[in-house]
Design a protein around this nucleic acid. Sequence first.
DNA 1: GGTGATGATTATCT
DNA 2: AGATAATCATCACC
Length: 408
Amino acid sequence: MLQQQQPLTGNGPSSGRGLGLSGHPGMHALNSVHQASQHRSDGGDSGLEGTENGHETRRDIGDILQQIMTITDQSLDEAQAKKHALNCHRMKPALFSVLCEIKEKTGLSMRNAQEDEPQDPQLVRLDNMLLAEGVAGPEKGGGAAAAVSAATSSGGMSPDSSLEHSDYKSKLSQIRSIYHTELEKYEQACTEFTTHVMNLLREQSRTRPVTPREIERMVGIIHRKFSTIQTQLKQSTCEAVMILRSRFLDARRKRRNFSKQATEGLNEYFYSHLSNPYPSEEAKEDLAKQCGITVSQVCNWFGNKRIRYKKNIGKFQEEANLYAMKTALVGQGDDSPHTPNSTGSGSFLSGSADLFLGVPPVNGEQSAYQIGAQVPQTPPETSNGNWQGRNSPPNGASPHSDHSENSD
DNA sequence: GGTGATGATTATCT
DNA sequence: AGATAATCATCACC
């Protein structure tokens, strides 16, 4: 379900997969009930049902179907004629009263175990959830708002969360509309079907004894059947909402790459503080503001960057050169906003500076950065700053505490 | 579909 | 608390 951000199309259950409430086989079940009922109603008169003895009542379904298939207009007419003849038979009232007596006797032994059944707790749970999510009940921002507030309080939301918010809301409202359409459809079908069955029973009551209680029972059975289908619909809806929610709330699933500017800003800071790429709280906040991300995202980014840089310095060399050149150019005129306090070499680059020590590299040749700023080809532990070889930076290691040397 | 890049999470350390 | 290292899950490109 909901594979690959499949759009929510309101195709209803027949649409199959996607957030469209899939797989509540209601109508199939209904059709079978309907057919059975219809068959029963015809059977008494047309002689389709084997009633001669008890053994034949359990006829093979294939047989019955076969007989249904062979019904013709002519045989139906014949049946009608027989029915009429039976109704007009002089012995009919007497026979009918006997039948009524028998019926009453057997009716007494009939159990009504299923009456007054308490409401299904599962259904109650589903109802509550749908209500809480804003799918059932009056339309309002309830569930969506709750989800959004939960997401934003986690601190991991990107600035475009409002976009996602509306996305979530629109998808939820689609689920809502599908749910209500289907529910209405089933309710209507239930009413129609019940009326139909009651009419049939009334019709039958002219030739066989049908008690009001029996009709009630039949109506109860139909309602239970429909209630099962509605439960399935509610279950599917709940599933769809849960999936939508999990996708919306799980930040990891919703990972978005940072914007180019954000990445550049972070990289500039990183490479301009290569000797000590541990931004202070203040610097993190500045970077977060500047890049349009959260402080924790800045932390994640630097954590990832440090570890990845350290693991494969060679790979990042080109990037380092690029930023060295860039920042050096910017730094010539004024203070770069990304290198607020210089990029001291100091304590973290063993005896040397970072990136900005070097002259900006010129294509192709070994860059000044490579020479002077130590982006070595050698394993991390051996060069380019002690931060690569230790577990955590010393206290107050923030570049803001500053060592002056390079950068501009 | 495979694959590398990348942002987030988690366990663990200091 | 803040860091590292491993890992997960997704994106983006081929």
